[in-house]
């Protein structure tokens, strides 16, 4: 019996007339990297925002580590770290100041926050840029700091919303290594991406979402098998098979 760390049941969310998420249900096991794939506007980010308690679903239920995000949001929040798609950093502050600040926000005391900030900067290979202003960092460095901030407070689960978008292969590879390292330590991760190769590399299971609905969910190999020879089919083929080839807004 797998230990389900996150359970989402029948999530619905509309913005005016637009139904962004329409009855999404899934669960993520403890220590698992779960990929959420979908074209632009499919409802991935809205789903993550509801799971991360920043957006209230119209209906449905989410529990994280046994705590309902509706009834016990503070407890659920204490278990998660969020790495948003857009860089949520103070550009005019230094890397260390950003990390320490968000560490304090996640409940660490001053000493703990400083220690964790140093550890996370080393993890990202940015310890020598600790006092540099974020505004002066490259896109890849900012992405790594964005991830480092999500790790402050030692969360048990990470929400990574397209953490490698728009960066060079070196920085991307560095982030993959960090994520694999976290997985090996037992971290539960929800991962959204447009890059199918990184989903294949990192995720134990993936779900494909489109039009606010979950249209497929399984291991990458099982999904490939559903449409052909898994050795010849790529996850991108699976993605296009389920979501179609028409262009999206």
């Amino acid at each position: 019996m797998p230990d389900e760390f996150l359970i989402a049941k029948e999530l619905h969310k509309s913005f005016s007339e637009i139904k962004a998420v329409n009855g999404v249900s899934f669960s993520i096991n403890r220590g698992e990297i779960f990929g959420l794939l979908g074209p632009n506007g499919a409802g991935k980010t809205t789903t993550i925002r509801m799971l991360a308690t920043v957006l209230q679903p119209d209906s449905g239920e989410v529990t994280i580590g046994g705590y309902s995000t509706h009834q016990n949001a503070p407890k659920a929040r204490s278990l998660i770290g969020v790495c948003p798609q857009d860089l949520a950093l103070y550009e005019e502050l230094s890397a260390i100041d950003n990390l320490v600040f968000f560490g304090r926000m996640s409940g660490l005391d001053g000493k703990e926050a400083k220690e964790q900030a140093d550890i996370n900067l080393r993890l990202m290979g940015l310890e020598d840029r600790a006092k540099g202003k974020i505004a002066k960092f490259s896109g890849g460095m900012k992405r790594r700091i964005n991830l480092a901030v999500a790790l402050m407070g030692t969360p048990e689960m990470l929400f990574l919303d397209e953490p490698t978008v728009g960066i060079d292969p070196q920085s991307r590879n560095s982030i993959y290594e960090v994520i694999e390292n976290l997985r090996d330590k037992g971290m539960t991760i929800l991962y959204t991406t447009h890059y199918m190769e990184e989903a294949s590399r990192l995720c134990k299971r993936v779900a494909i979402i489109d039009g606010g609905q979950m249209i497929a969910m399984d291991t990458p190999t099982a999904l490939k098998s559903q449409i052909g020879d898994p050795d010849k089919i790529t996850l991108e083929d699976v993605f296009l098979h389920y979501t179609g080839r028409s262009l999206r807004d």
């Binding site: 308690t53 503070p74 949520a88 950093l89 926000m105 407070g153």
Partner: peptide, 14 residues
């Protein structure tokens, strides 16, 4: 707009 307030909220800040 740059989601830093939202990030505080997910960091257990009321």
């Amino acid at each position: 707009q740059n989601n830093t307030l939202e990030r505080m909220l997910t960091s257990s800040v009321s």
